[in-house]
Write a protein that binds this DNA or RNA. Structure first.
Lengths: 211, 211
DNA sequence: GCCGAACCGTACGGTACGGTACGGCTTGCG
DNA sequence: CGCAAGCCGTACCGTACCGTACGGTTCGGC
């Protein structure tokens, strides 16, 4: 029955969170290893309890992804003093945080799980990951960009387009390669990549550049 | 047993290709619907034949993905007359082709399949898709970029970095959103997006721009 | 026309897993 | 103490699907 979205504000009991942690661990260490029996054993609970709490396997999966995705709150960047330098630092920090999260094992696992789920006409996990991933990022970055525009430190017509370009400059092909299991992708210093992406972004949208 | 990579040069018989087509159709129309029984029924062949030809389910899956991925050869762009205008047109055409392929149903299905596969410590499909997707694109675009640099029409230190930035500018968040089943992503005119990406790329790497 | 090879259709075994039922244990409460 | 509720552990059932076996049919070679 899947319980739809139950997490929004009312959280889980500690015991339930222990179960979700066990489920997430199983997901991370073996993508398809999330069987109800395995979760029950790992969490030292009974399958009956799992079904009582989460309805069915999909409900458990959804709760796990939702719960974990909501935990991935990247640190807020201060948008107080809005000088050219502070704006640039904020953006660069944002790029760093984004890359750090995206290249993490948990993010890769969650995205893989959601993609697999979406491959079966069931897009609920995909929606959750989208909502807590790219869209959450957008919601957080957009005000910063718009503040930068108001302060004449950035130029763009559509903050949506600006954000998506920023996303592309930062992420590039990193995420898809990780999802596909590419191991030749060495962690070439996230800091350097974030700095380069920020340079590019300001080259495109900075005040002294056309368009 | 999976037959490792068998496709490289020796192709499949027409009958075998009909089987692979059936398998691909099943994949596209229902991601997880690729059961041996379904393929056999769709292709009007016996399961015994499937196992004889492809070894096991993984072999069939691998053959299907490999065969289809190899078919996705984007049209070559001419790099003959290398004027500023022709280079720009080549790059823009490349962006268009890339977006067209990536947003296609077959590409989404293949990538989802490969991601799912990679989520199970089996990265063979991921490697195949990587090899025929991003890496093939890179192999084809790099010489164009380097020719542009030789002709002083582009500036960059590493063609690898230039390519990856291009990829990011073109793809942005489109692919991950499609893989996650986002339906709010209207096809906002691939041509316009390709043009914008090309503009950005030349703004960053064109001859009159620092860095 | 005969034979063997390839293949179709189907039935069957084995297994993995989702979901349910039930006995037993602990805990809190009157 | 007695009882009820919640939960653990486990046995169990039904189903889906992989992989195999086998009889029947088509087809090319001799």
């Amino acid at each position: 029955m899947a319980l739809a979205i139950k997490v929004n504000e009312e959280s889980f009991t500690p015991r339930q969170q222990a179960v979700l942690t066990a489920a997430l661990d199983l997901l991370v260490e073996n993508g398809d290893g999330l069987t109800m029996t395995a979760v029950a054993r790992r969490a030292s609970c009974s399958k009956e309890t799992l079904y009582k709490w989460f309805g069915d396997r999909d409900g458990l999966l959804t709760a796990t992804v939702q719960w974990q995705a909501a935990k991935v709150r990247m640190p807020q960047v201060s948008r107080s003093g809005l000088s050219a330098k502070s704006l640039r630092l904020s953006v660069e920090q944002f790029a760093k945080d984004l890359l750090t999260v995206l290249t993490g094992e948990i993010s890769v696992t969650l995205n893989r799980t959601a993609v697999t789920h979406a491959a079966q006409e069931k897009d609920s996990l995909g929606t959750i990951v989208l909502e807590n991933g790219p869209l959450a990022i957008r919601r957080r970055l957009k005000p910063i960009l718009e503040a930068g525009r108001d302060a004449r430190l950035l130029r763009f017509d559509s903050s949506e387009e600006a954000f998506r370009t920023f996303f592309g400059l930062v992420v590039r092909d990193v995420q898809i390669r990780l999802l596909l299991g590419d191991k030749t992708l060495m962690q070439t210093n996230i800091d350097a990549d974030a700095k380069a992406a920020t340079d590019h972004f300001f080259a495109l949208y900075g005040p002294s550049t056309p368009q």
